[in-house]
């Protein structure tokens, strides 16, 4: 909508000229996916980018008490920051409570967010093993995994969350 095809051709010609080089490919430094890895922290539901390593509920409980409870409460329900636990069965009520257990559709999202953004004051400081362990503990608090559970890439990706069927993809339905 910005440009006609004619103008687009001009842009690409101009790119080469702007770069002072023979080809627009001179803009941008080639990099391998291996070298992108430290930034490639997003984890989709297919779990393809989950890292090696593992963590269990018990380790997660200790990490949670030390690093998470101050904001999310002793059992994940007290706040003052977002409530992580509870709310199952409330979504259609007058007071819906959206937590990891009652709302989040994918366990991979929990791992992704814990590893990328938590704890709030030191994001990215958790090792992959720590992130697996805290994810395991938060899922255990929500009754999604047992207290003896250990999570790794395979077992985390295989989890079906309680509210997995609770979402309607409006973008897909728009395009049908």
């Amino acid at each position: 909508m910005f440009m006609s095809n004619f103008k687009l051709c001009f842009v690409f010609a101009a790119m080469a000229a702007f770069a002072g080089a023979a080809s627009a490919q001179d803009i941008g430094r080639p990099i391998t996916e291996a070298d992108v890895a430290p930034w490639d922290i997003s984890v989709a539901p297919d779990g393809d980018t989950l890292p090696a390593g593992s963590g269990d509920v018990q380790t997660g409980a200790e990490l949670y008490a030390a690093q998470c409870a101050v904001c999310h409460g002793e059992t994940g329900a007290e706040g003052p920051a977002d409530q992580l636990v509870g709310g199952v069965g409330t979504l259609a009520s007058d007071a819906p409570l959206k937590t990891v257990g009652s709302f989040w559709p994918y366990a991979t999202t929990t791992f992704d967010y814990v590893r990328r953004a938590m704890p709030y004051f030191a994001p990215g400081s958790l090792s992959d093993d720590d992130a697996y362990a805290i994810t395991a503990y938060v899922l255990h608090l929500n009754g999604v995994v047992g207290e003896g559970a250990t999570l790794d890439a395979n077992s985390l990706q295989a989890i079906t969350m309680p509210n997995a069927q609770g979402f309607i993809d409006m973008y897909a339905s728009d395009r049908e």
Binding site: D40, S42, V43, A44, P45, D46, L91, A92, P96, K98, V100, F103, W104, P105, Y106, T108, T109, D112, Y113, A117, G166, F167, I168, D169, M170, Y171, A172
Partner: peptide, 29 residues
């Protein structure tokens, strides 16, 4: 990152989705 599907990040699942009366949430609005 160019992908073949949505990543379902925290801010398109737990946030920024729209909870209907029936308890289902509209995603990707």
């Amino acid at each position: 990152k160019v992908t073949d599907g949505p990543t379902h990040t925290k801010d398109e699942t737990s946030k920024y989705s729209l909870l209907q009366k029936d308890g289902k949430a509209q995603q990707f609005t």
